[in-house]
């Protein structure tokens, strides 16, 4: 396979999934002839037609509620919410139904659907177009939440999400759509939902991140290695719910130091959960308090100030140095 960017890799996964399984239906706003506002659904409508590639009315609850109905019926809908900042319109459908049907019918009715949402900041978008609210879904029972960090994980996680028997929230950090290219394998690969990846081994500090801020983590690790001679262990969570506690604890037990990095607000963010699990499972291995480098507890600022809000390599390096010198 050639190198491709993340938008193309997600598009490839959608093509592959639709080709393989006639139950896979793609639906959302502007995903048909317009091919999605980020062109992620390119070619699908032309190939599969409006029966399986459905331009819906402009109604998020309608999209999610109808997708739930399709999933109950036996289809495998992959619904798109155009921007994560508009999911709130559909939150009640996600929380009260998608995450609950299996439980309340004791396994009889299930909702194998995927909700794709371009998420996060960094593209100088207008207001309400830059949110990272994955913690809300991680807090909602019955859902799975995955967030890729690049083309290869995007394709593999989307396949896993579509094949999963339960509802999966699939966040697409839109700052990564065209940021860089990666080789993806010739054959379809899936990544197991619920498993993190150690993307670099190290011994002195563990850096943990996911999604767009994996880039900040990698930048920081390079600086730490060059300037401080510290090789950081880096974990890309990939799956926010379920969270791979084992990989986190194994790493922290080894390094004794940790920084968690994410874009969403800090309070009750994913970092809070990571820290709590380390507290429960590896407290006595810690050499220093864990630091969080996250978005602040304010709405992500309109684009003139968003750079200051977002975690970057320098912020992560500062936090890591504090932890290392504690």
């Amino acid at each position: 396979m050639p190198e491709m960017n993340m938008a193309k890799a997600i598009n490839l996964a959608l093509h592959e999934a639709m080709d393989r399984d006639s139950r896979v239906i793609v639906m959302g706003e502007d995903i048909g002839p317009d091919e999605g506002v980020f062109r992620v659904t390119e070619g699908l409508w032309k190939k599969h037609g409006e029966k399986r590639v459905i331009d819906t009315p402009l109604a998020e609850s309608g999209i999610v509620g109808a997708a739930i109905g399709m999933a109950l019926y036996g289809l495998r809908p992959v619904a798109e919410i155009q921007f994560a900042g508009f999911e709130y319109y559909a939150f009640h459908q996600i929380e009260m139904h998608a995450g609950r049907y299996r439980n309340r019918t004791r396994g009889k009715l299930t909702v194998p659907m995927v909700l794709r949402c371009p998420s996060g900041g960094g593209i100088r978008a207008i207001e309400h177009h830059s949110e990272s609210r994955e913690a809300i879904y991680a807090h909602s029972p019955g859902l799975k939440v995955v967030i890729p960090s690049g083309p290869r994980s995007a394709r593999a996680l989307l396949h896993a999400a579509i094949q999963d028997p339960d509802p999966v929230i699939y966040y697409e950090p839109k700052a990564l759509y065209r940021l860089f290219k990666e080789n993806v394998p010739e054959t379809i690969e899936t990544l197991p939902i619920g498993r993190a990846q150690v993307i670099q081994e190290g011994s002195e500090i563990t850096l943990i991140s996911y999604g767009a801020t994996v880039r900040a983590m990698i930048d920081a690790a390079e600086i730490l290695e060059e300037e401080d001679g510290v090789k950081a262990e880096m974990i890309d969570l990939l799956s926010i719910a379920p969270l791979d506690t084992e990989t986190i604890l194994n790493s922290v037990r080894k390094t004794g130091r940790c920084v968690v990095i994410h874009e969403g607000p800090r309070t009750c963010g994913i970092g809070s959960e990571v820290v709590a699990r380390i507290n429960e499972g590896a407290l006595l291995y810690l050499e220093a308090p864990i630091k969080r480098v996250t978005g602040y507890d304010v709405p992500i600022p309109y684009f003139a100030r968003e750079k200051a809000y977002l975690p970057d390599g320098d912020k992560v390096v500062s936090a890591a140095r504090e932890v290392l010198s504690f």
């Binding site: 309608g62 109905g69 999933a71 019926y73 459908q93 009260m96």
Partner: peptide, 17 residues
Amino acid sequence: ASQLLHAAGMGMAANIV
């Protein structure tokens, strides 16, 4: 009213299938 959308989605699915 939340169930009405599931019904709509089922009807859409019936048309697809």
